[in-house]
Design a protein around this nucleic acid. Structure first.
Lengths: 230, 230
DNA sequence: CCGATCATTTGATAAATGTCAAGCACCATC
DNA sequence: GATGGTGCTTGACATTTATCAAATGATCGG
């Protein structure tokens, strides 16, 4: 592993306060790998070999039951994923695939578990990271359980608007079918949800969305601090 | 706090390997409190004052949006709840209320965070517990996102059957309206879901359910190791 | 530029789920 | 045993969401 790669790892809160020597031994046996788009990285039933760090590209965590499939979450660089699975030494519980060409740093799960035992600073950070992940899924669970499809879309648009701060303009960061799956609906239904939002000032041009009546949209969406990400 | 109460705490995996002195100082300022049924313990927006240990009774964690309300999970003794919130020092993120008369041990969240810093054994256990909670919500999320109401009920019945091992007979551990909320549907819809399952050998007599065609029910339910609790 | 492929949209329809209202059953209390 | 409350069920209906099919639009390699 190159120094620049170690720097990337070090920049993540999870690893920031780890003792130099522990970081080094954890990264021994780690490697950076390049994947093309649409590649399945692992299935939910696979045993967790690696903690993953997405360095570049985009990854989708998803789950399947029968023939149905649903997006659990999308990972953007730079971020770790499947930390919980790596720590407990069991199955991944979710499947993963690349959405774009991606670079992923693979850290042997065994090393991560050893680091947790040896480095108490790291254990602390792991606790905080896991707690944040937990609340993240709780939010997603509330979202799908307590809101209609149109409300989920409206709130998604508002969150994106806040993040992109584009003054009434946002660009969807993923294909619409992926967005549909993330929001728990079919692509057809997403398309109709956009139509439903037209009276609330939402106009669609491909991946470019204009929000011209933010107040009206908020009235419909009724965003909640305890569901919608900051 | 009495010795018997300390014993209860000690019996939980989370606290089992904690140093005696750290356990003692964590429990300083803790107290056992008795609540009647239907009492709200905290709201999702409240700051997390306490890690809770349900010693007796039953507690519902729920969330509300607008006027809608949904059960997140049910807690049975002996178990801790809101560990993640206690560790991060923020809002509870979920509301809680007693379903029955309950005894709850309240441990100041500050003490828990201190214990995590001071006792590395405890930090390890907290990591494992949080990872388990995380996967628990992930399961719930998959369940609601990828299954229909009838499938969720069918799988719930099969899980209960496994747990109660009643040879084709189970007793619902909660009121049907609570079950409905937990399974993400209205009471009316739950009632109809039971009717739908009649051809699959499910007969209902109040809280007593008979499952007479387990194979047929499994064929419908298509249980999954990665959704349904053991 | 052409053709092929894929994503998206639209329409028609079906299935799933929620809402409202009424009735029933059970239980507690008087 | 009457009374009232509560939870559950059922029916009628509305809404939401999914499915299937087809049309449209975008993209990419040749």
């Amino acid at each position: 592993m190159r120094d620049s790669e170690v720097e990337i790892v070090r920049s993540l809160p999870l690893f920031s306060s780890m003792a130099e020597e522990n970081l080094g031994s954890m990264l021994a046996g780690s490697f950076l790998q390049r994947f093309p788009a649409t590649v399945v990285l692992f299935a939910e039933s696979d045993l967790t070999d690696f903690l993953h760090v997405l360095v570049e590209g985009q990854v989708e965590l998803y789950a399947s039951v029968n023939n149905r499939e649903g997006t659990m979450t999308l990972i953007k660089p730079v971020a770790t994923f499947v930390l919980a699975s790596a720590l407990v030494d069991g199955a991944y519980q979710m499947s993963a695939r690349t959405l774009e060409t991606s670079q992923i740093l693979m850290i042997p799960a065994e090393n991560v578990r050893k680091a947790m035992r040896d480095d108490s600073e790291f254990a602390q950070k792991a606790v905080m990271e896991l707690a944040a992940c937990y609340h993240g899924v709780v939010r997603a669970y509330k979202n799908i359980k307590l809101r209609t499809a149109v409300e989920r879309l409206a709130n998604y648009l508002l969150v994106q608007h806040r993040r992109q701060s584009g003054e009434g303009e946002i660009t969807l960061p993923v294909e619409k079918r992926t967005l549909a799956s993330m929001l728990g609906m079919t692509p057809e239904n997403l398309s109709r949800a956009f139509s439903t939002l037209k009276p609330y000032g939402v106009t669609v041009d491909g991946a470019d969305i204009r929000l011209e009546k933010l107040n009206d949209l908020e009235t419909l969406a009724k965003p909640s601090e305890f569901i919608d990400a900051r």
